[in-house]
Design a binder for these strands. Structure first.
Lengths: 341, 341
DNA sequence: AGTCATCACTGGCACATGTCAATGACGTTT
DNA sequence: AAACGTCATTGACATGTGCCAGTGATGACT
């Protein structure tokens, strides 16, 4: 009889309601969200939920719900300064050895969550922290990137553009380029620009035709303005997702492997020494070019797991990333690999 | 026998310590601050303090202490998105009426804290949120600015410069220009540039000489690069702090009042219509010029209280501020004043 | 060497918070 | 118009947190 929004019209407003004692002595009509008010009183004024409930004329449980809503919606942000994590000496040593400009290493907690989950989590924090008012973010795809997108704190970034780096795969991943991109844009309340083209086409000629298409061409113009890219990294050993997911055939993959490729990231293959590995597949793959990628100032790679160590080393030597988010075990292994040669 | 830092050398390391059950199964040696680790597990992984204590091999109370340290030191930041507060319709209407680019209105809680305290608090949040990696912040002085400086969250901003807008007053305020400036710089871990000159000198000639002095000249060159200014606002009615604090004499003040001045902010007087009010005092006052101030992109004024309403209106019309942080009652009053004429 | 001050850590209690099933209002369907 | 589903809200209970005084270790001073 008091709560259902401040439109107190229905119940005779001036009615000297029985136990009205402390009932909304200040019917706030705050013009602002109740959750915001509660959050302010709780987090900034340090009041207890009891007091807030009393002041707002609602139950304490409702205050709790409002606070939770405030956290969920990003009205209140609880953030750990990721630069502190980078400072951890492991990260520092890794940066020094590889030439990364920044490196974030996940503490080796006993967390039960999957590695993708955990690295995506840390990656989300890093992305948020590195995010300016105005950005153009190029997004590739992958399981970790997908988790990252889901773990971003909702925020208002109307001047940020999130663009898809690579064509939409025909395959049905649950972490497709389209999903990764739109998820991130949604969380940031940013402009979402999908690439309305297949990821791989049948002949180079088709690629040429598509690339000449104004709408596609325009998209790649946008990509050249990227201020950051976000992507995962894949190794090629065993039954990889690239083949399993239907992104490419085993035969196509084998060509790269035969040429010495060890990994794949943001649309390009490379060997363990960091040299690009190319094949005719590249001429049919619709994605941002290698040179263009290297022109992006901040290139964030999220990924870890021991099988990926070789791929990560190759990618780092290839310079595709200058920011790496990974886990402790992988960081150690990469460091060892670099020490080796 | 376990806690005093991880240099576990003293107690025979391999000793099969009696109740060693869960004793630091992972003596982390994290290379990183324990507080950081605890904060990560608590705020990001959502573990309970009990679990964390177990994992880290310390008592729960210590975990609590670590978390508090993490909050105190700014490792963990809990922030309310101030843009939401700006969105509150009162703030919106005020922005629309006055031409402010942003406006933040303090919720009218029943807080017992002083108005300076509360507005300083909100101002601190606004400043933090608007702070880029690289800034030059010009700081004036006042009680509210002082509170703001004390309520800033500690953070690392090595590329920020905090510069004093106005000469150091001979008077002994507990909120002098020097203190306001150095406090803010300290909190931000930014470069602090004080103005080593008196605020008011005896004759215009002395001012001219000082202004020609290389070190002073250089300071004003720096001030011209300000990306934001932070200041309070004073009314001139009754025994004002300007006179009481010994900043200027009652006679000097009276000249301004006789000319119609109603307020004073960031070193300049103005009337209720927003016209600058000048006197010979200005020629002896060592401070950033009015024109230079108006060239600063973001000009944040913190202040409220009904006696200041006239002064705030004048200041807004004078354009000295384009961002205002105030309380609800004052906001209403200012809005009413604008509606009037 | 002995004494004292300081500091970090902890046990345990009082209190604050998180959770959940029950409640009642409202809108929708038959 | 009655029956139903949905949703926000709540009271009461189970946990988790905040705090303080007590303890032992360390280092400084006499």
């Amino acid at each position: 009889m008091k709560h259902p929004t401040p439109n107190a019209a229905p119940d005779a407003a001036p009615a000297p309601d029985a136990k009205s004692a402390a009932r909304r002595p200040i019917p706030p009509q705050f013009g602002m969200d109740q959750a915001l008010w509660a959050a302010w009183l709780y987090y900034e004024d340090g009041l207890k939920q009891d007091h807030i409930a009393e002041q707002m004329g609602i139950s304490r449980a409702s205050v709790f719900n409002l606070l939770q809503k405030a956290r969920d919606e990003g009205i209140v942000t609880i953030a750990i300064d990721p630069t502190r994590i980078a400072r951890a000496d492991l990260a520092l040593r890794l940066s020094a050895a590889t030439g990364l400009s920044e490196c974030f290493v996940l503490p080796a907690g006993n967390s039960t969550a999957s590695l993708h989950e955990q690295i995506g989590h840390l990656g989300a924090r890093v992305l948020e922290n590195r995010l300016g008012e105005t950005e153009v973010i190029g997004v590739a795809w992958g399981r970790t990137v997908m988790r990252l997108s889901q773990l971003l704190t909702p925020m208002q970034r109307p001047n940020v553009t999130v663009a898809q780096i690579t064509g939409s795969s025909a395959a049905t991943f649950d972490f497709s380029p389209v999903l990764c991109t739109s998820n991130i844009a949604e969380r940031l309340n940013a402009r979402c620009v999908n690439l309305h083209a297949p990821g791989v086409v049948s002949t180079p000629a088709v690629k040429d035709i598509l690339m000449a298409e104004p709408s596609i061409h325009q998209h790649f113009d946008l990509l050249r303005q990227c201020t950051m890219t976000v992507f995962g990294v894949t190794h090629l050993i065993g039954p990889t997702l690239l083949v399993q997911g239907g992104f490419m055939s085993q035969a196509e993959m084998q060509v790269y492997i035969d040429k010495g490729a060890i990994g794949f990231a943001s649309g390009h293959f490379f060997d363990i020494a960091g040299n690009p590995v190319r094949s005719e597949f590249d001429d049919r793959h619709i994605t941002m070019s290698h040179d263009e990628l290297l022109n992006v100032p901040r290139r964030i790679c999220v990924g870890g797991g021991l099988p990926k160590v070789g791929a990560i080393c190759g990618m780092l030597r290839n310079r595709l990333a200058n920011v790496l988010v990974t886990d402790e075990a992988t960081a150690h292994a990469v460091l060892a690999e670099y020490a080796k040669g």
